[in-house]
Amino acid sequence: MRTILMAALICVPSLSAAQSKPYHDEISQVFRGSWAPTLADCRDAEGVNKVFIDGGSVNYYEGNDYLLIGVEFGGAMTKRGGSGSLFNGRFTGRTETNLLGESNIRMEIDDRDKNVMYRYPIGEDGEPIDTREVKSVRCTNK
């Protein structure tokens, strides 16, 4: 019995962090960085209108949307014609100490202009609500 148990333990493959893969996509590099409605908002020292995106969250002035699950894909833009990088994510929102619940969001960046991002809430039918578009420009360090 002892020999069988030892053999079973030896045969079980070990999983390391290098071997494991998350069950969903992080927010990709093309979306990461600082964004604002206008370039003037990018220069605002207070940063009230800026949004900072990293691999797992969208961070606002006094609030955050944390990625729960997401998928990145390429395809047709919602309103622009042409194609781009798209990301559908389910986020849980927070402002200060208040949890806001969950929301489904699509982010899009046109292949022709990587410095403009469009965000849309996703409706019950799984499609972006194009009338609620939020347009942002990439903030640079200049």
Rank of each mutant, 00 (worst) to 15 (best):
L15M: 12
S16Y: 06
S16L: 11
S16A: 10
S20D: 06
P22N: 06
P22S: 10
P22D: 06
Y23D: 10
Y23E: 10
D25K: 07
E26G: 09
I27D: 02
I27S: 03
I27L: 01
S28G: 08
V30C: 05
V30E: 11
V30Q: 06
V30W: 03
F31T: 02
R32H: 00
R32C: 06
G33S: 00
G33T: 00
W35T: 00
A36E: 08
T38M: 02
T38I: 05
T38S: 14
D41L: 04
D41K: 10
D44P: 03
A45S: 12
N49W: 08
N49M: 13
K50A: 13
K50T: 15
F52A: 10
F52G: 00
I53P: 02
I53L: 01
S57Y: 02
V58A: 12
N59G: 03
E62A: 11
N64A: 15
N64P: 00
I69F: 12
I69G: 10
G70K: 06
G70T: 09
E72A: 15
G75W: 06
A76M: 08
A76Y: 06
M77Q: 11
T78M: 05
K79N: 12
K79S: 13
R80P: 00
G81F: 02
G81E: 01
G82C: 03
G82I: 02
G82H: 04
G84C: 04
G84I: 01
L86Q: 11
F87H: 10
F87L: 06
N88C: 03
F91M: 03
F91K: 04
T92V: 14
R94K: 12
R94S: 08
R94V: 11
T95G: 11
T95Q: 14
T95H: 11
E96G: 06
T97R: 14
T97K: 12
N98A: 14
N98M: 14
N98W: 09
L100P: 04
E108F: 01
E108D: 05
I109H: 03
I109M: 08
I109G: 05
D113T: 07
K114Q: 12
M117A: 10
M117P: 00
M117H: 00
Y118G: 02
Y120K: 01
Y120A: 05
P121D: 06
I122N: 05
G123L: 04
G123I: 03
E124N: 14
E124P: 10
D125Y: 06
D125A: 11
D125E: 08
P128E: 07
P128H: 07
I129Y: 00
I129N: 11
I129P: 01
